[in-house]
Computed example of a mutant assay.
Amino acid sequence: MSIEIGMTGRAETVVTDRNTALAVGSGALPVFATPMMAALMEAAAMDAVATGLEEGQGTVGTRLDITHDAATPVGMKVRAEARVTAVDGRRISFTVSAWDEAGPIGSGTHQRCIISNEKFLARTNQKKEAPHVN
């Protein structure tokens, strides 16, 4: 594994009726949804470290602290960027930001943890076999 401070990634989308706050249930207006901006930021972070992972490894998001500062209407392009700011064992920290065609729309920090995809899924699927606690 070779994840280094300074690695960057990017993700892009276009605002459609399917990724608005109204469509995903996070608001009542047809503007780019905050959860969709968060997902785009996570995708940029995954892109930033993809080339540094070993075969069978992945990353999972563990923390996200962002602001959504400006609304984006249907039809506009949105892009997110992530930059690795720290690597502590399997934990990776990022700065994340997003823009639409008119300017900045959000920013913050994000953390991901490097995992073995197979082991992670096996452990997660064990939940279905464990007794349920309410």
Rank of each mutant, 00 (worst) to 15 (best):
M1K: 11
I3K: 07
I5E: 09
M7I: 05
M7S: 08
T8M: 15
G9D: 10
T13G: 05
T13F: 00
T13H: 03
T13Q: 06
V15Q: 12
T16I: 04
T16R: 01
A23K: 00
G25M: 09
L29G: 06
F32S: 05
A33Y: 11
P35T: 10
M36N: 14
M36I: 04
M41W: 07
A43Q: 15
M46D: 06
A48T: 01
T51Q: 15
L53Y: 05
E54R: 09
E54H: 08
G56R: 09
G56D: 14
T59V: 11
L64A: 07
H68P: 02
D69H: 01
D69N: 09
D69Y: 00
A71M: 15
P73M: 11
P73K: 14
P73R: 14
P73L: 12
V74M: 02
V78T: 04
V78F: 04
R79F: 04
A82E: 09
A82W: 00
D88I: 02
G89Q: 01
R90Q: 15
I92D: 04
S93K: 08
S93Y: 05
A98N: 06
W99A: 14
G103D: 10
I105H: 13
G106Y: 09
T109I: 07
T109P: 06
H110V: 07
H110C: 10
R112Q: 09
K119F: 03
L121V: 09
A122S: 12
A122E: 08
R123N: 03
Q126V: 03
K128T: 07
A130M: 12
V133I: 04
